[in-house]
Structures are given as structure tokens and as C-alpha cells.
Simulated assay, not measured.
Amino acid sequence: MIAAVWLLLVRDGNVLLSRRRGTGYRDGWLSLVGGHLEDDESVYGGAAREAREEVGVTVRRREVEVVSVVHRLEGGSRVDFFAVCGRWTGEVSNAEPHKCAGLLWSPLDALPADVVPYMRAAIVNYRAGCWFTSRGWPDSFPNSLDHTAY
């Protein structure tokens, strides 16, 4: 099973998004800061590493809160941890221009249409206080908040 961590870096009701480039997965789409966890790191350690590598900021463990988990079937079984962070040290910048075509701040309640779908679901869940969803499995709900069809 592949595990990843994604950061909702939040400032004044806006979340930081990055435009994927050269990754081979949904290039051109908007994503959160994050990526695969290394074998020797925790979710919090991975969040700190990804923040530093991708946008050049330092996040501390006490500033990171895991708020959502997505278990999805997409090229195998994957578990994605989503963490919110409202405080960091340093200025946000595109530290990986070969993987990111640009950064933008988007209102949490008005996301652009081209946010990677499972990340959109996690952001919607975070706003609604729903901590878990599954996607792609035969017994998954049709979307993150509509459980009536199950």
C-alpha cells in the first residue's frame, strides 16, 4: 500500500495549491503540497519534509493537525493523509519549478474546478468535519459527503 501526506497550508481562509508539472500524474491539475511518505518517516515528518522541499517553509509538529484520510483504489491501494497547518516559518515560494508550474492561494470554499479530485474531496471533508472517505472501491460512496446512495 502506498501512503502519502498532503498539507493544507491555510492563510486567511485560503489554501495553497500548486499546479503539477512533469510528474506523470495529472500534470496541469492543481494539487496540495505533499507526496509519498518515505519508509523511515512519520506522517508529521513527511509533512515537514514536503513543505520544505516544495515551497521552502518550515512547519513544526505542533502546528500540523491530521484532519482527513482518503483510502483510494487508483493503480493499487493508496492511503492519503491530509493535514492542516496555519503557521510556518519562511516565505512560501516555488522550490520545485520542475514539478510545479506555479502556486496560488484559493478560498477554501471556492476551489478551482481543476483540483485533483481526491484532494478536492479531502478539502471538502475537512471543511465539513468529516475525517474519512474512500474512493474507487466497489463499496465506496459516490462522493465524499453523499452517503445516501450506499
Results as ranks from 00 to 15, higher is better:
L111V: 06
D12Y: 00
H71S: 14
V124G: 01
R87I: 08
V124R: 12
G28P: 11
V5T: 15
G76W: 05
V79Q: 10
L17A: 08
P107H: 09
Y25L: 10
P107W: 06
L111H: 05
N94F: 01
M119C: 07
M119H: 15
V15E: 10
V92A: 06
V43I: 15
A4T: 14
V55W: 03
A110W: 03
V69Q: 12
R61C: 01
G75E: 07
W88T: 07
G76K: 09
E96Q: 15
P112T: 05
V59Q: 02
G75W: 04
W6L: 13
A3H: 13
M119W: 09
L9K: 10
L104G: 09
V66H: 02
L30W: 15
G35C: 05
L16S: 07
Y118S: 13
D39I: 00
L111M: 08
V69Y: 04
Y118K: 13
V64C: 03
V79C: 06
V5P: 00
Y44S: 03
G24Q: 10
E38Y: 10
R78L: 11
N14V: 01
C100L: 09
G46A: 06
D39G: 13
M119I: 13
H98K: 12
I2C: 03
V66W: 02
A101F: 00
V67G: 06
G86K: 09
V57C: 04
L30Y: 14
S42M: 01
L16C: 08
G102V: 03
N125R: 15
W29C: 12
R49Q: 00
R61S: 11
A83M: 06
V15A: 12
S68Y: 07
V43K: 07
L7I: 03
E54F: 02
R62N: 13
V70R: 03
P107T: 10
V116G: 01
A3F: 02
D40P: 00
L103Q: 06
G35I: 02
S77I: 01
Y118N: 12
G86H: 06
V55K: 07
A113E: 15
E63S: 13
N14K: 15
E54V: 03
R62K: 15
G22D: 10
R20N: 14
R127D: 04
L17F: 06
G24S: 08
R26N: 12
G102E: 05
R11F: 02
W131K: 05
L32P: 08
L32K: 11
R120W: 04
R61Q: 12
S77G: 10
L17P: 06
P117K: 07
D114E: 14
P117M: 03
D12M: 00
R120Y: 09
E54T: 05
Y118G: 00
V84Q: 14
L16P: 09
S18H: 11
L30C: 04
E54M: 10
V43A: 10
S93R: 15
D109S: 13
R21C: 08
W131M: 07
P97R: 11
R120C: 02
V66I: 14
S42F: 01
E41Y: 09
S18G: 13
R72M: 13
W88M: 09
I2V: 14
W88H: 11
W88Q: 07
V64F: 02
